[in-house]
């Protein structure tokens, strides 16, 4: 923890020195950015735009995780299903994010549904790939045990399947969260009237570096907080049965 603080402080110090030396409007110093952030928080502008973006992140992330887990599990468990669906998966995996976003906006319209669907579809194939591996790795011996003791379907999912999938779920949600929020910004840049991506787009046309940096930094900090306050504690809870190194 202490090392991390030092390392981050050093980064900010280097930035401050570079900004002081250059004295350019294109690289504002940390103090300027700090002041800009405080102002935008006071006016409510920054919290509002971040909430818009965060809502889209949450929505598309949830859709991609749920559908991807179900599809990946089915593909990992049934060879026949896997053979049929795999070509679609390959197509989807190699479809550029921008193409999916444009299709969604054209077919669905320039609205919230299109934005969330576009991001979810971008993320979906990665979840499917990871969860398929997870489903393939399920222990057949535990399956047999559950069958012999006639575990109810729900109990089997809760006590047998999900704990075995937990590491795969954690891996895909971590990589997922970072992909999703990056794509959400693109979606907002192209076709939404609010959100961090929209603000960055209009700041770019005005060459307003202070605004770009302050919004980008705030959003990165928010995602780091979610990672360390939500994702990591959940992971620790899921792994509490593992023997800790003494």
């Amino acid at each position: 923890m202490l090392q991390r603080t030092y390392s981050l402080t050093a980064l900010i110090a280097i930035w401050g020195v570079a900004a002081a030396l250059l004295q350019s409007r294109l690289l504002p110093g940390p103090l300027t950015i700090g002041a800009a952030i405080v102002t935008d928080i006071r006016t409510g502008e920054l919290p509002f735009q971040m909430a818009c973006t965060l809502g889209r992140v949450a929505g598309s992330f949830a859709i991609a995780m749920v559908l991807g887990t179900i599809a990946g599990y089915a593909m990992g468990r049934s060879k026949a299903f896997d053979r049929y669906v795999d070509p679609w998966l390959v197509v989807l995996l190699n479809m550029p994010a921008l193409v999916i976003i444009i299709f969604a906006y054209i077919w669905i319209g320039l609205d919230e549904t299109a934005a969330i669907v576009a991001v979810a579809v971008n993320k979906l194939p990665n979840v499917v790939v990871v969860m398929r591996e997870g489903a393939r790795a399920l222990d057949p011996e535990l399956d047999e045990m559950a069958k012999a003791y006639q575990f109810a379907r729900l109990s089997r999912i809760r006590n047998l399947v999900l704990p075995q999938l937990a590491p795969y779920l954690a891996a895909s949600s971590r990589s997922g969260l970072s992909i999703v929020w990056k794509i959400v910004l693109v979606v907002e840049l192209i076709g939404r009237p609010n959100g961090v991506g929209f603000v960055l787009g209009s700041a770019f046309s005005l060459f307003d570096m202070a605004k770009i940096l302050s919004y980008a930094i705030c959003f990165i900090v928010l995602m780091l907080l979610i990672e360390s306050l939500v994702v990591q504690p959940l992971e620790r809870r899921a792994n509490r049965w593992r023997r800790r190194p003494a």
Partner: peptide, 26 residues
């Protein structure tokens, strides 16, 4: 049926008591 396999086949993420109780019929 009660069955004891060659390996214990317990759920590693459940405690001893939960492992036993999870197998109980309703």
């Amino acid at each position: 049926l009660g069955i004891v396999f060659q390996e214990p086949r317990l759920l590693p993420w459940r405690t001893v008591e939960d492992n036993v109780r999870l197998a109980l019929p309703a």
